[in-house]
Simulated assay, not measured.
Amino acid sequence: MFGPEGPTLRELAVQALSSVEHGYDLLAPKFDHTPFRTPDPVLDAVAEALAPLGPFTDGLDLCCGTGAGSRPLARLCRRSVTGIDFSAGMLDVARRRVPPAGPPRVSWVRGDARALPFTGAFDLVVSFGAFGHFLPGELPGLFAGLRAALRPGGRFAFPVFAPPRPTHPGFWLLSGFDAVMRVRNALRRPPFVMYYRALRLGAVLEELERAGFTVELRVLPGFGRRADGSPRGRLVVARNDGAPEPGAHTAAGRVNS
């Protein structure tokens, strides 16, 4: 499935019937050959959008997987890049494919994003495609931990893309996936938390602001616009303190989720 180097349907089924942690351990050797890995154009667009907000010294890739996010972070951070993930299998792949020597220095930490072991350690945190693994009730703790891990003035950034309309086949594909996962989790333990449509952007932004962040939305221009003129891709930038950057728009009142 997904080509000769990707996982088979049977391997994906075994993964889905496992815990999230063990499932990703199993998927790790073939993860980069699936659509679940964030595409390079998205990584490059995020790095380009964040570059004017720097310079940054130390960066964290939250839920780093096999380390794809270390490449844009290495372009932005001068001293160190850290990846954290709770899958040992994913981190093993990351260590093999990303050299530790810098600058910046690259290191990997096995840990839970909901209980970050850092205090005031970073001025930039990024995350790519991780929000489907968090339930709505986990966001307050997640964002409180992120804010504690950031230095004053530090930023947490992640890309978001306009969801498909109900008239698009992708809408029904994602909705169907979520429905199957809900049935699976109702029948089997431990649950495999991975939902594409469980969290709405508006709710995420509200929780960020409630946690004490100043939240901004920046357009990722390389992904074009929808028929109604709204951007297909945007970058959420949550700042630990301070006023919005010049040229950015505050999130309030500007989100359609």
Rank of each mutant, 00 (worst) to 15 (best):
L76C: 09
P39I: 14
T57W: 10
A51T: 05
T38D: 08
L76R: 10
A68R: 11
D85I: 05
R79Q: 13
L73T: 09
A49I: 00
D61I: 08
G65K: 04
A47G: 15
P41N: 14
G83C: 12
I84Q: 04
V106E: 02
G102A: 05
A94R: 05
V81C: 02
G54R: 01
A45R: 10
P35R: 11
A49G: 04
P72M: 07
F56Q: 03
F86C: 07
G83P: 13
V93A: 10
C64Q: 09
C63H: 12
M90L: 13
I84F: 01
G69A: 09
F31H: 04
K30F: 10
L43D: 03
G65P: 05
P55Q: 01
V106F: 03
K30P: 11
F56W: 00
G54N: 03
E48V: 12
D61M: 10
S70R: 08
R78Y: 01
P99G: 06
T57Q: 14
S80C: 09
C63Y: 10
G65M: 06
V81N: 02
F86K: 05
L53N: 03
L91P: 00
M90C: 08
L53E: 13
H33A: 12
R71P: 06
D40L: 15
P52M: 05
I84C: 05
V42Q: 12
G89S: 06
T82G: 05
G67C: 07
P35D: 04
R96E: 09
V106N: 01
E48F: 02
E48S: 14
